[in-house]
Simulated scan of single mutants.
Amino acid sequence: DNILVYGHNMKDGTMFSDLLQYKRESFWQQHRIIQFDTLTAQAEYTVMAVFQGEAEDLFAYYQFANAETPQEFAAYVDACKGVALYETGVSAAYGDKLITLSTCDDSGKNSRVVVVAKRITEPR
């Protein structure tokens, strides 16, 4: 149900540093779609929620992979939306596929920025 990708935010601007720009709603408005490519497929995702915080203060988003019930899936979506920095108007329902991108942020000692998106195209 969820692909979780961790990437280190390098100070030289490489790797996941661009993910930090999603903290600004204006950036999200111009970059709502994320293309995720693997060796065998490509798919597009629309950003559902962006949140940040100290790792120990955030809910355990990093433990969600496969929901066993619709309620478990809805609880994850609700938790993401509940701590989101802004409203995207995007939600997800049981059966949807998600991607969660997580990186470190220099705004705190152990801060994270997390972007959660819902797949909108079938892998091709």
Score class of each variant (00 low, 15 high):
I3Q: 09
I3D: 07
L4I: 11
L4Y: 09
V5T: 12
V5F: 08
Y6G: 14
G7E: 07
H8N: 09
N9G: 10
K11I: 10
K11A: 13
T14Q: 11
S17A: 15
S17T: 13
L20D: 06
Q21I: 01
Y22R: 01
E25W: 04
E25V: 07
E25M: 04
F27W: 09
W28C: 05
Q30Y: 06
Q30A: 14
H31W: 05
H31M: 04
I33E: 06
I33R: 09
Q35S: 13
F36W: 12
D37E: 15
L39C: 14
Q42A: 13
Q42N: 14
Q42Y: 10
E44M: 10
Y45P: 00
Y45M: 03
Y45G: 02
T46A: 12
V47D: 00
M48A: 09
M48T: 01
A49S: 14
A49I: 05
A49F: 03
G53Y: 00
E54P: 02
A55S: 15
E56L: 11
D57K: 12
L58W: 06
Q63S: 15
F64D: 00
F64K: 03
A65D: 14
N66M: 15
A67W: 02
T69S: 14
T69F: 10
F73M: 08
F73I: 08
A74E: 08
A74F: 01
A75P: 08
A75F: 09
Y76E: 07
D78G: 09
D78T: 11
A79P: 03
C80I: 03
K81D: 01
K81W: 01
G82K: 02
G82Y: 01
G82W: 01
L85I: 12
Y86Q: 05
Y86F: 15
E87M: 03
E87Q: 12
E87C: 01
E87A: 11
T88K: 02
T88P: 02
G89W: 02
S91Y: 01
A92L: 08
A92D: 06
A92H: 04
G95E: 08
G95R: 10
D96K: 07
L98K: 08
L98R: 05
L98D: 04
I99R: 06
I99V: 15
T100C: 07
T100P: 03
L101Q: 04
L101N: 05
S102V: 08
T103Y: 02
T103A: 07
C104Y: 03
D105R: 00
D105G: 05
D105A: 07
D106W: 09
D106S: 12
S107W: 09
G108D: 11
K109P: 08
K109R: 11
R112V: 00
V114L: 08
V115C: 04
V115F: 00
T121Y: 09
E122Y: 12
R124C: 11
